[in-house]
Design a protein around this nucleic acid. Structure first.
Length: 122
DNA sequence: GGCATGACAAAGG
DNA sequence: CCCTTTGCCATGC
């Protein structure tokens, strides 16, 4: 897939959406994992990317299309990130409906529910 | 076209 | 466990 220099950021967002759509039901992905799997856009300092990559994913998800299962994206601690205007309640409910279990601290066991594109056990 | 802000993460207090 | 700082770009006003 080509990456036009002038629209690399937009393409990047598309990649994020595409990847998030691939997350199986009942599994979750972290921002950092998404970022590292997609890789930095052309001309991006990869060292800087390792620090801000996850953040870019967050920017992209901020205005997610309706067909993107945004609730399957959680932060590195397995915690739900609060969306502007919405409390964590909705996202938690959506995930629990899919069988995702939260521990007493309200965190997801990424070791069990975390998913990667190359996860054969999808 | 400048200024403030932020779905993150890791480290430090 | 909670709060603060730093990294650094896209987005919104």
């Amino acid at each position: 897939m080509e990456l036009k220099p002038s629209t690399s950021k937009t393409e990047y967002s598309k990649r994020v959406y595409a990847l998030v759509r691939r997350i199986p039901k009942g599994r979750v992905m972290t921002y950092g994992l998404i970022a590292s799997h997609i890789g930095p856009p052309q001309g991006t300092d990869i060292y800087a990317y390792e620090r801000i990559g996850p953040r870019w994913v967050g920017y992209a998800m901020r205005s997610c299309p309706d067909d993107v299962p945004w609730h399957r994206v959680v932060n590195a601690e397995g915690r739900i990130s609060v969306r502007p205007g919405l409390g964590p309640h909705l996202q938690k409910s959506l995930l629990e409906d899919e069988g995702v279990v939260f521990d007493l601290a309200g965190r997801i066991d990424l070791d069990s529910f975390g998913w990667a594109p190359d996860d054969t056990n999808s």
